[in-house]
Design a protein around this nucleic acid. Structure first.
Lengths: 344, 344
DNA sequence: GAGTTCTATGGAAGGGCTTTCAAAAGTAGG
DNA sequence: CCTACTTTTGAAAGCCCTTCCATAGAACTC
């Protein structure tokens, strides 16, 4: 059937051990033997059997990523970094899109199947407590991206810092009546961004009515969606409060909804209302959004590096890195266009 | 170390064969034995070793997808269909993003590594001729999505039909001077869409100047990008021809660029110029684009089904399915909003 | 109750690789 | 030329499963 090392061994007049050693570039093989084996292998168009290797090596060179599937451009962009880095290291990436908590559990379970993957990346999803112990027991490395648990490595975004910069930017442009269209508070980023928004205003001595803040009640995607942004702004407009001169919106995708709502009411951006949002997904530039940039590609890259380190040093202390978002100024805030990117 | 069927066999006082039979729900095991084994397996928290299974079964339950990575929302949406379908069948999906022809080759090569995957889905990329023979020899199933080769199964989009409908729609709205902003002609869809556009106009007895058609020269993504659309429209405007009252644009993402270019020149859509594009990616509705909808999720789903069939019947005749896009009317063409979706 | 057919079961073989171990071959030193 | 190492090599063991084969026992048949 297909060519195995036995075929090569026979043809090259050596033992299978030698073939394996040649193929793996192990030491202690004469150049002469090595070349003979390589020639035969090439001639027979030999392809190593991945699973047999994985079984023998106890290592699969495959990682899995569990993400809230494709509902959010943010993940896709991080994933891009993950995939490219992985690929250059000869690893494969299995993608699991989880649409609900039950699927998350199912995929986590699957990831723990001994030997299937060398590690799992969990994106933006809270790790169910009952898995914490399981993962530690099974010794399957887990790296959290955009989410947190003290027992595992994680890559995070400094939401508080980002929200502070965004808010300060609006203040520096002279805005004193500012609103916020937020996602669902059940998500940690939404909570963190709101808290910093409030705190920054307070420190600047600015008072705003409670009604200026709209938190989404939507379940889907924790309110990080276009619809949520649209409805959030509509809800605000329905409250009859004086229109703030600026809004901080908790994500680009929501901001797109906000923009649509404002257009519908003939409110101009940035002339009547300035907008600053969060993420800087690729889309943001199409809408000329001023936003807090997260280095998504980099985050993906780093996540992989962490994972590899963890695989190689299972007992190393847990580490958590947090990226600081940088302000990207475009048209929606009314300031000049210019690019200010702080990277940690 | 980790729990194997041997541990279960010992504990349950049966042979490993019996354990395997129970775990695989094979026939000929007494209920009593079956229950005893299951109890023990559960107690020991047994997880089958995926690679050992794959090796023994000669089947990995894993597919790979090679896509022009994440540069295009179209793929992501198809991928969503692929992933969900696959997941429900207990398959895993490995994703390979290829940024150039060389990477495509590398990934194809990797896919052929015996046993690694049960099959490969190739998206929108031309299959290099030298792989044709290799794939047939190695007997690794290959399904083409949005691309074509007579030797393999494929899922396609009826680009010609779609372009015809789009063009007819513009004609039916009264437009007589129509332009087209196209992608790079080195891509088959771009060629097909252009050909039908021309033919439809001709059949309607409408003559347009050659200068009304702009083909992208961009390499990146074959010109299916926002930048390409922006530049395409700018190039047209620089030609000094009378402004057509309508444009057919070869993809939504380009249309977004076109919109930006028109806005920059203060040309209103749809009042001054009507736009119809192609794809109906999720984004399209945010821009209120009238566009030709491709059932991307469905395409993904079908691709998987074909693949499974191919795996089960390697010798079945090659088949090719083509989806007919449906017109989705939004604001950009100036007609009333209404949803007209033809599905094949 | 002897002979026959089925069903349930244990365990070896096999899948293709890596790695360990022991033997063979080579090198150096005296 | 013999001894003491070192390097190279072949082959067995092991990774964990599925599957096949042979056997033991149960269930039937007449």
């Amino acid at each position: 059937m297909s060519v195995t090392i036995y075929d090569i061994a026979r043809e090259a007049n050596v033992g299978i051990g030698t073939v394996s050693r040649v193929l793996n570039n192990s030491a202690n093989v004469t150049t002469e033997t090595r070349e003979r084996v390589i020639t035969v292998a090439r001639k027979l168009n030999y392809q190593p059997h991945a699973f047999a290797q994985a079984l023998a090596r106890k290592r699969s060179n495959t990682l899995s990523a569990i993400i809230p599937f494709f509902t959010n451009y943010f993940f896709i962009e991080v994933l891009q970094g993950v995939q490219e880095t992985l690929s250059s290291l000869g690893y494969d990436l299995i993608i699991h899109g989880a649409n609900n908590q039950q699927q998350v559990a199912e995929y986590l379970q699957r990831s723990m199947r001994k030997g299937r993957v060398d590690g799992t990346l969990l994106f933006s999803l809270e790790l169910p407590e009952n898995f914490v112990e399981e993962f530690r027991q099974q010794k399957v490395p887990l790296v959290l991206v955009d989410t947190f648990h003290p027992a595992f490595d994680s890559i995070r975004v400094d939401n508080a810092g980002g929200a502070t910069i965004a808010t300060e930017h609006l203040i520096s442009l002279g805005h004193r009546n500012i609103g916020m269209i937020n996602a669902n508070l059940q998500s940690a980023p939404a909570r963190e961004r709101l808290a910093s928004f409030r705190q920054t205003l307070q420190q600047a001595g600015i008072q705003i009515p409670d009604g200026n803040i709209v938190n989404s009640a939507e379940e889907k995607n924790d309110g990080f969606s276009r619809e949520s942004g649209f409805r959030g702004m509509m809800e605000f407009l329905g409250r009859g409060l004086p229109l703030p001169t600026a809004f901080f919106v908790s994500s680009d995708i929501q901001a797109i909804g906000v923009l649509a709502a404002l257009r519908e009411r003939n409110i101009r951006v940035p002339e009547d209302v300035a907008i600053v949002s969060f993420d800087d997904v690729e889309l943001a530039k199409n809408f000329d959004l001023t936003t807090m940039r997260q280095p998504m590609f980099k985050m993906g890259e780093l996540a992989v590096k962490k994972m590899i380190e963890r695989i190689e040093h299972p007992e190393a202390p847990v580490s958590s890195v947090s990226f600081k978002p940088g302000l990207v100024i475009r048209a929606s805030c009314g300031a000049n266009k210019q690019y200010v990117f702080h990277e940690q």
